[in-house]
């Protein structure tokens, strides 16, 4: 029974939409030290919608740039091209992540808002804690729950069983695993692997609820872990399962996190989330 379920889930993962072409090409550039602004522009040239979104994002209050940016070249200069690629990724996954998610009972747009919020909170935490996390932090946070898009339907079917398990005080993704044979972190990691995403990103998605099991410790994983719980606490993307997740005491210790840091980041996150979501008209 559980075996059939798992096979069904894996089949759904396989048929999940592939990465938009422009994003896949740009991602390859990330590993290329000789990449140039011209190359980025070349790729974006064929996608006017994407370019427009990218420039709107770049001009959002969040980045606080001193002047209006009107071209991709200018954006590369002001933000750096690694950052810029992260923003293109955001534009690319907007459509997929904006869908309603059954099982977790997230209305249309709410997973997207949650994802943007975790990105903003993660970058905020890294800054507040003065830890260096890779440029990939924004994308890792943005995609951490992508697995929910596939798993949601299956969670809905077995919601009663999963909630019974979770009501015994275990974390919701552990309950998912007990009933379905997998959970939204495994599913999400598999999707990113199929998209040929860099291992660091796959890792962050895979362990965002259980950073202590990540093999070797990774600030990126710890930060996404904490940022996710913080955003749920402040009510962004809280679904049916509520706050049924467990913060890792070791991760907070590794980060040197204090209550003040959490509250400080929370107080800034809200406005930036609204600001960034406005760019996408959601």
């Amino acid at each position: 029974m559980k075996q059939t379920k798992l096979l069904n889930i894996l089949a759904k993962v396989k048929s999940f939409p592939s990465m938009p072409e422009a994003a896949a090409k740009l991602l390859k550039l990330l590993d290329n030290p000789d990449a140039t602004a011209a190359q980025i522009e070349q790729i974006l040239r064929y996608d006017a919608g994407l370019t427009a979104n990218l420039l709107k994002l770049t001009n959002s209050v969040y980045f606080g740039l001193p002047c209006k940016v009107g071209s991709v070249t200018q954006a590369v200069v002001l933000l750096g091209w690694k950052k810029l690629i992260q923003l293109v990724m955001a534009s690319c996954v907007n459509a997929v992540m904006g869908k309603p998610v059954p099982g977790y009972d997230l209305p249309a747009g709410e997973l997207w808002r949650h994802s943007i919020a975790v990105s903003v909170a993660a970058e905020g935490l890294a800054k507040e804690l003065k830890v260096s996390a890779s440029e990939e932090i924004f994308t890792a946070a943005l995609l951490h729950d992508v697995g929910k898009l596939v798993l949601g339907g299956f969670v809905k079917e077995d919601l009663e069983k999963i909630e019974t398990e979770a009501s015994r005080g275990i974390s919701f993704e552990v309950a998912e695993h007990m009933v379905l044979g997998t959970d939204h972190t495994e599913v999400g990691a598999q999707i990113l692997k199929n998209w040929s995403f860099p291992p660091a990103l796959v890792n962050a998605v895979r362990w965002h609820h259980d950073p202590d099991s990540a093999g070797k410790t990774d600030t990126l994983v710890d930060i996404v872990h904490v940022a996710n719980i913080l955003c749920l606490m402040i009510g962004i993307g809280v679904g049916r399962e509520g706050l049924c997740y467990k913060p890792s005491p070791l991760a907070t210790k590794r980060l040197g996190l204090r209550t003040n840091d959490l509250e400080m980041v929370a107080s800034w996150t809200l406005q930036y989330v609204d600001d960034l979501c406005d760019v996408f008209g959601s």
């Binding site: 275990i170 719980i229 606490m233 706050l243 467990k246 913060p247 005491p249 209550t259």
Partner: peptide, 14 residues
Amino acid sequence: CGQPLGKNEMFKIG
């Protein structure tokens, strides 16, 4: 005023 699982003081904002 809810809170996540566990007894972590830091997350007792609720």
